[in-house]
Nucleic acid binder design. Structure first.
Lengths: 227, 227
DNA sequence: CGGGCGCTTGATTTGAATCAAACTGGGTGG
DNA sequence: CCACCCAGTTTGATTCAAATCAAGCGCCCG
């Protein structure tokens, strides 16, 4: 099945980033232990990590967020293909939601995963590396979020996305998320995000063929927030 | 030696948070494998994690930060007693500095640590748990940093610190870091931090016997940023 | 004793939030 | 088929809060 082989390729890549051909047995074992599920846009998918289970995003995207007493939503992480959910046992204050239709998640029971690590040491390394990824992702987002001006934040965000998500045939980023999501992820107002995107376009660091398609024109300018 | 027994107690606590009496052999093994070092205020201590080594803060505090091209310093994490350094192999863009005199760090070589995990499985669990701690710490800071007003940020920060650092005999928090550090950690100007602390004091949610000593008076008010 | 660092307060400016309104495209129902 | 609707996006005007510029204070350390 197509999906099967996609997931296999993903697992092989994750198991040995340098040498995608190796580690087929471990990837097979992961594939066998996984139960896949598919989610629609805005559907809560926190159940995949209930009971301490671990999930891996196969396609689409998942947002991890919390809603404050005053109604403000704060997105603290965006998980895309290859990112793991549920690495920190349980923090009940966060919700998970599929961002787009056809978001597919492979789900593993913790005890199965534990048993697998004893047969395939590479899987234990995989988990460690995904946790390290999560730390780097959060650290990097903190750097972006900690910047002072909206132009620096949005620019840094787009530059970071550039390293994580797929491009269309013309080389433009295809943002999986809306302006509202970006705003809630950066701690800005939607209007500010929109205005800033327009300003970046006028400044020449990006092009916007459509609201969801972003062509990076000048990475340095984008990161500096200097235009 | 006093320090030896302090480090032992720390390792035992980290190895089994629920039952501090157990896991003495693993703690002993960690103690034997560790090389301690002591650092002075503002001294760069990134060398302890050079070559992929792992460090554990025994006392004092360490700040992890990056300096941008425009000179702006961004502190992305503050490590205190029990926190681990170098969990994400190497990200050369961050610097480490001791925050206070007498900051002590236990340092482990990665291969020694690896060998230990094979004898003591609890040590491998320890590392996983410390990584999960780091993720939770960063997520929580992101929630604080993503808030809109300075009062919410500073209030949330103090409330978070409350759960991590020691209190003096009167029950007040002893901040290990300066207003400048707090500002660089929250992405605010020093003046704003100072003003906000004063406002919180006047609002009655905290008391400030001295700039570095904070008594939490009303946690709810502090977290809401509502006063 | 001096100097500098850390902290605080004040006045002004700037930039993002907020309030308000129009526009777009895709989807639905008549 | 077309009118309508609606969520997402954009732009404009105004308000407000934090950055910036400026200056004074207390204290520790040399």
């Amino acid at each position: 099945m197509e999906d099967q082989s996609n997931a296999m390729r993903l697992f092989r890549r994750l198991l040995s980033p340098d040498n995608p051909g190796a580690e087929a047995p471990a990837a097979d074992a992961l594939r066998m232990a996984a139960r896949d599920s598919e989610w629609r846009r805005n559907q809560p998918c926190g159940t995949v990590v209930a009971g301490g289970r671990i999930g891996c995003v196969l396609s689409g995207a998942v947002r991890k967020y919390s809603v404050r007493a005053n109604g403000q939503r704060q997105i603290i992480d965006l998980l895309v293909r290859g990112d793991f959910l549920g690495l920190t046992a349980s923090d009940p204050c966060f919700s998970l939601e599929a961002v787009s239709n056809g978001t597919r998640i492979a789900c593993f029971r913790r005890q199965d995963m534990q048993a697998l690590t004893e047969v395939h040491p590479a899987i234990s390394e995989l988990i460690r590396n995904r946790a390290a990824d999560a730390i780097r992702r959060l650290e990097n987002h903190l750097l972006i979020q900690g910047r002072t001006t909206a132009k620096e934040k949005v620019g840094g965000y787009l530059a970071a996305m550039c390293r994580r998500i797929a491009r269309d045939q013309s080389g433009a980023l295809v943002l999986p998320i809306s302006r509202y999501d970006i705003a809630d992820h950066l701690g800005l107002a939607v209007e500010t995000v929109s205005r800033t995107m327009t300003a970046l376009r006028r400044g020449g660091s990006i092009a916007l063929p459509s609201p969801r398609h972003v062509e990076i024109r000048d990475t340095a300018m984008l990161m500096d927030g200097a235009n």
